[in-house]
Amino acid sequence: MGAGQKIGHAAYQGPSVLKEIVYGLTLGLAAGGLWKIHHWKVQKQRKEFYRLLDEGVISVVREDE
């Protein structure tokens, strides 16, 4: 055996299924979390709008000039 035959070569084994699942779950949970935060923000704005509408502070009817 020559010296060149003793050197091991890193063989490409293809994608790791477990890594792909972990990456997918991580990205999915991150995107879902951001979407949920956005939803909470919109819900808070909507509740505030209807609260002000019920109190009579704002109106959706345009006043005549």
Rank of each mutant, 00 (worst) to 15 (best):
M1D: 04
G2Q: 03
G2A: 05
G2T: 08
Q5V: 03
Q5M: 09
I7Q: 13
I7G: 02
H9Y: 07
H9K: 15
H9D: 06
H9R: 14
A10M: 14
A10I: 13
Y12M: 03
Q13W: 11
G14I: 03
G14R: 07
P15K: 07
P15S: 04
P15F: 04
P15E: 02
V17G: 03
V17K: 13
L18K: 14
L18Q: 13
K19Y: 06
K19S: 10
K19H: 11
E20V: 06
E20G: 04
E20M: 13
E20T: 12
E20I: 06
I21S: 01
I21N: 03
V22R: 14
V22Y: 13
G24S: 10
G24H: 06
L25T: 09
L25R: 08
L27H: 05
L27Q: 09
A30T: 15
A30D: 04
G33S: 10
G33W: 07
L34Y: 04
W35R: 03
K36A: 09
K36W: 10
K36V: 02
H38C: 03
H39N: 12
W40Q: 12
W40F: 14
V42S: 11
V42P: 01
V42E: 14
Q43I: 02
Q43D: 15
Q43F: 07
K44P: 02
K44H: 15
Q45E: 15
R46F: 03
K47V: 00
K47S: 05
K47Q: 10
E48C: 06
E48N: 15
E48T: 14
E48V: 02
F49D: 00
F49N: 02
F49P: 01
Y50R: 02
Y50N: 05
R51T: 01
L53F: 07
D54L: 07
D54F: 06
D54Q: 12
D54R: 12
E55Q: 14
E55M: 07
E55V: 01
G56A: 11
G56S: 11
G56Y: 11
V57W: 03
V57Y: 07
S59E: 06
V60S: 08
V60E: 12
V61Q: 09
V61C: 00
R62I: 05
E63V: 04
E63I: 02
E65Q: 13
E65C: 09
